[in-house]
Each structure stands twice: as C-alpha cells, then as structure tokens.
Amino acid sequence: MSKRILVVLSEFGYWGEELVGPVEAFDRQGYQITFMTPTGKRAHALPPSVDPEYVDPPLGRSVTTRDMARRAADLDESDRLDNPVSLQALIPERPYYSALNHLRELEEYHARLDRATGDLVSGFDGLVIVGGSGPIVDLANNERLHELVLAFVKADKPILAECYGVAVLAFAREWEDRASILWGKHVTGHPKEYDYKDGTGFLGVDFNMGPPPYPLEYILRDATGPEGAFHGNVGKETSVIVDYPFVTARSTPDSIPSGELLVEVLENGLRRHGW
C-alpha cells in the first residue's frame, strides 16, 4: 500500500518551490498526497515565488530558476490544490476558560480532539508544513495545527517543516506544561541573515508588514535549549536537518532535498542527517 502524506498550506501564500520539492519527491514514490488549509480555502503561490526575475533582497539575487518558476506555476494552476481539507472543520477549538460551562465544554473538546487527531494520524504516514511568508499569519500560532503536530509526534510519525513553517514546531506545545517539543532537538529554519528588512508580503491583504514580526532563528534557538541547536548554515547552499521525528528545511533551495530526505525517513528509517 502506498504511503499517504498530509500537506498543510497557508491561505495567505506559500512559496512555490517549497511545495514543488516535496510533492515531486512524493510523486516519484507513488505516495498519495492530501492537501489541507486552515479553513478549506484554496491555497495559492506567492507571486515572487513564480517570478524568476524577482531578486530576493537578503541574498541579492533571484532564488527561482525559470524551470522552477514553470514547475511551481504549473502546480499552482493545476486542479491538485482544489478542494483542500479544512483543518477548522476537522479539529475542534479549545473553549475559553470564561465559558459558562467550561468543564463540560472542555471534556467534550478533549473527546472530539482525540477522535479527530486519531483519525488523521492513522490515515497518514507523514505531515508536511510548507513555508513562505503566509504561515506567519495562519499557521504559526494555529492551535488546531499545533494539536495535529502533537498527535503526529505522539504517534512517532515524521513531520517536515520548511522555512517559516518551522515556527509551528516551536509553538506546538502541550497545554499542561507548555514545554517545547523541540527541546534537545537539532533544527534549521529561516535565519536572521535571510529575513527581509522590509516588504514581507501576504496574499489577500493590502499590508506591508516590513520585516517579519518575529525572528524565527531566535525562537528556534530558545526552543531547542542547551542540549539541542539551531543550525542556520549561512554561507552553505542548502540546510536540511533530520532529527527524528522532525525534518526541517531552511528556505527555498532546501525544498528538494527535504522532500527526498523525508522519503529516506519513511522508506529506509533515516533518523539523523545534517548535524
């Protein structure tokens, strides 16, 4: 039976190559891919990610080849991304503590959550969180997605997160102790050197955020603790870290090797790479 992968995309824009890399690796293996977005709206690629003429400000060059721009545009315009699964429809929302009947609502929440995450985890072999600027808006602090991540971790199933999608791993924490699931782990992600000073953009909003609202590198350094580490690998062409169950990818060029490494995790039991 072919393996099944759940791929989560932001509704505020994903980076084209960061979807293409894993999807092409999974397609070669014959994996079944299901796409999910926070509310079930169709995801779209960020315009710069399908424009080979766009110059990435921190790197001072284009990060998208003409061939990759074509592949990303073809996937973005295909019907494969139509009708994604809705995270909101499947995972319940934790009630506020100010709810009038909080105890009963909390009991019902946990019962529904266990059923929902149990069904999703049993139905998929791996989880992918695609990067880009969009995840800053609707994935990084999405408690429903946090619960899904925690369920995959508890089931000992792998999770690939790319670029600013890695923030989800830093914020996904058990409600009781709030301890980082990355504590003691080795990860990579968007380093300070790669952050924009201005022009962080999103689809569907007419708003220039300027720089990213948080420096992901600092968050990951704190989340991994003294026994783990953040690896920016600045100055190296690629940066992908495997510290099972996590596969983390720094940025755009890391999408292809990250997809290939997740396949290695699933097919050959890879548990460590890049550190």
Rank of each mutant, 00 (worst) to 15 (best):
D222L: 13
D222I: 15
D222G: 15
A223E: 08
A223V: 11
A223R: 03
T224F: 00
T224D: 02
G225V: 08
G225E: 14
G225F: 15
G225M: 13
P226R: 07
P226L: 09
P226N: 08
P226H: 08
E227L: 11
E227C: 06
G228W: 12
G228E: 12
G228V: 14
G228P: 11
A229V: 15
A229M: 11
A229Q: 13
A229S: 13
A229C: 12
A229K: 11
A229Y: 13
A229R: 10
A229L: 09
A229G: 12
F230R: 05
F230E: 03
F230D: 02
H231D: 01
H231T: 02
G232C: 05
G232T: 03
N233G: 15
N233Q: 15
N233C: 15
N233R: 14
N233Y: 15
V234K: 07
G235A: 03
G235D: 01
G235F: 01
G235K: 00
K236P: 12
K236V: 13
K236L: 11
K236G: 12
E237I: 06
T238Y: 09
T238M: 11
T238W: 07
T238K: 08
T238E: 13
T238N: 13
S239V: 00
S239C: 04
S239T: 00
S239N: 01
S239M: 01
S239G: 02
S239P: 00
V240Q: 01
V240I: 01
V240F: 04
V240K: 02
V240D: 00
I241L: 14
I241S: 09
I241V: 13
I241A: 11
I241R: 08
V242E: 06
V242A: 12
D243E: 05
D243T: 05
D243R: 07
D243L: 05
D243N: 07
D243I: 06
Y244G: 04
Y244N: 05
Y244A: 05
Y244E: 08
P245S: 13
F246L: 09
F246C: 10
F246M: 11
F246E: 05
V247N: 04
V247H: 04
V247E: 02
T248R: 04
T248P: 01
T248I: 04
A249E: 10
A249Q: 08
A249S: 10
A249V: 09
R250I: 09
R250K: 10
R250M: 11
S251N: 15
S251H: 15
S251D: 13
T252V: 13
T252E: 06
T252I: 14
P253D: 00
D254K: 06
D254Y: 04
D254M: 04
D254L: 03
D254I: 03
S255A: 15
S255N: 10
S255L: 14
S255M: 12
S255I: 12
S255Y: 13
S255C: 14
S255H: 10
S255D: 14
S255F: 13
S255T: 10
I256F: 07
I256C: 06
I256D: 05
I256M: 07
I256R: 09
I256L: 08
I256P: 06
P257T: 02
P257D: 01
S258W: 08
S258A: 11
S258C: 06
S258P: 07
S258V: 07
S258F: 08
G259K: 07
G259Q: 05
E260A: 07
E260C: 03
L261I: 02
L261Y: 02
L261F: 02
L261V: 00
L261M: 02
L261S: 02
L261A: 00
